[in-house]
């Protein structure tokens, strides 16, 4: 059957993305971003990182360095829902540690240490909690992002309610690559 023109563009493959970025200085960051968007669980798997290093002719350690530096990149499959707790100074002074602990407790996560990792996912893949250094919304501190929406002047009560609501609504679609 001859293919018909559709308005929906097919997402590029990883190899196509690499081909597009190859040889351009500073292209790694954008490539990693696109590669993560390709992945259903919004993360960069080890095979993906290896393929990128090989395709871009970069040392594996350097690709790993960049992928671990930016909190945007995930090296583990992410949960269906995402909670991002700002742990910047302003949010911290207005109680973000308690918010983080509440979110962890509500989702039944134990043993998370901020000095070891910046994200954790529930074993059932329901939700991921991530900490970031600052959202740039300090005047509205403390802020927590729930499935992409930033909630300002968050309280423990509002957070608990937001988490309970997540259990009732379907998970958002994985973001599409442009």
């Amino acid at each position: 059957m001859p293919s018909t023109t559709t308005t929906q563009r097919k997402a590029p493959t990883l190899d196509e993305l690499i081909e597009r970025h190859k040889g351009k200085p500073g292209a790694l960051l954008g490539l990693l971003e696109n590669a993560q968007e390709l992945e259903k669980f919004r993360y960069l798997s080890e095979p993906t990182l290896r393929r990128i290093a090989e395709g871009m002719a970069l040392p594996l350690s350097q690709v790993y360095s960049v992928a671990t530096f930016y909190s945007f990149f995930n090296l583990e499959p992410q949960g269906l829902h995402s909670l991002v707790v700002c742990r910047g100074t302003a949010c911290h002074t207005r109680g973000s540690l308690e918010l983080l602990e509440t979110a962890l407790a509500r989702l039944g996560i134990e043993g998370f240490r901020e000095d070891e990792s910046n994200s954790v996912t529930t074993p059932d893949g329901f939700a991921s909690i991530r900490t970031v250094a600052c959202f740039g919304q300090c005047a509205l501190a403390p802020v927590v992002q729930v499935d992409g929406t930033i909630h300002s002047r968050m309280t423990v009560g509002k957070l608990v309610a937001a988490i309970e609501k997540l259990r009732k609504v379907p998970a958002p679609e994985a973001p599409k690559s442009k």
Partner: peptide, 19 residues
Amino acid sequence: VSAISLAGRGIRTRVATFM
């Protein structure tokens, strides 16, 4: 050789090999 690089950021920064 580039066996090692600086990985992570902030308090989690470390000299690391791939993964």
